[in-house]
Write a protein that binds this DNA or RNA. Structure first.
Lengths: 145, 145
DNA sequence: GGAAAACCCAGTGAAATAGTTGGGATTAGA
DNA sequence: TCTAATCCCAACTATTTCACTGGGTTTTCC
């Protein structure tokens, strides 16, 4: 029941973009260095995020990536779903093509539904802006010591 | 972010044991047939659940497994954790041995913590008894149609 | 024109998952 | 006492998923 590195790395990387919001395109290389991630791998993640409409890209020299919306308008849920697909303990609660011969009598399904709903509630309520603010608060507390 | 078959099969199987609670030991074979699972594989899961104290076993002919507590005293959380380990999106929020060089400055950790807490809240609040009752209610609704 | 960047996509090695197999040990009942 | 039912345990294997890597193309700035 773990997220893969796609979701984890992707969120870290897009957080970094959020910090630079409004400052023009940032190169993959810079993000990869700042968050200690593989540049090539990150490229795949950003490609996905771009196709999902969360990022804009600028090609050519001095190009790079930027958020397509304000940090307060992008939720963790959108990011994780773009990178990992629906976040749920089992496909039977999300995948329309999923065939379950005993869907109507499955005794565990209600449990999976409840877990999914509670995760959704959390990730859809956190925006990149929230993450930035939480981090600022945390750093201030550190400084006080 | 999916559960493995261990958690899924295990919960189905132990639910079946809950239905027979108070009726003495039930054989693996019977459970395997009723929930359409591999008997040998199920054995591994029950072995784990026994070691965790959730099941009792009776060896020999006419032996089998039974719940070690009332269905109302066993939660889904106990079962899933026994079979899958801690349920969390990332090891950094559960594993004491986990080494994270940037734990204090990690911007994503608060997100993982919130997800974990919300999952825990759900799975620790559902007992086997709850599952049985939910299923009875569902069947009654079906009958009305 | 050259360098820097995004873009595209196929391949790969390692690890995890989902079982299977085979052989014991124990016990109830005939 | 014998036998069949059953739990117990460890090793083995096939498949899938993951986390990259590499090689090439295209675009744009200087």
């Amino acid at each position: 029941m773990k997220l893969s590195t796609r979701g984890r790395y992707g969120l870290k990387a897009i957080y970094q973009l959020a910090l630079y919001y409004g400052q023009g395109p940032i190169s993959l290389k810079q993000i990869a260095i700042e968050q200690e991630l593989s540049e090539n791998y990150l490229e795949q993640l950003f490609s996905t995020l771009r196709k999902e409409g969360l990022l804009h890209s600028v090609r050519g020299a001095q190009g790079g990536y930027m958020l397509s919306k304000k940090p307060s308008e992008i939720t963790v849920g959108e990011i994780l779903r773009a990178l990992e697909g629906n976040i749920a303990p089992y496909d039977c609660v999300v995948d329309d093509d999923f065939v379950c011969s005993r869907e109507d009598t499955c005794v565990t399904r209600p449990v999976w539904v409840k877990i999914k709903n509670s995760i959704d509630e959390v990730i859809d309520s956190i925006t990149l802006q929230d993450m930035i603010e939480e981090n600022i608060k945390f750093e201030e507390q550190e400084d006080e010591r």
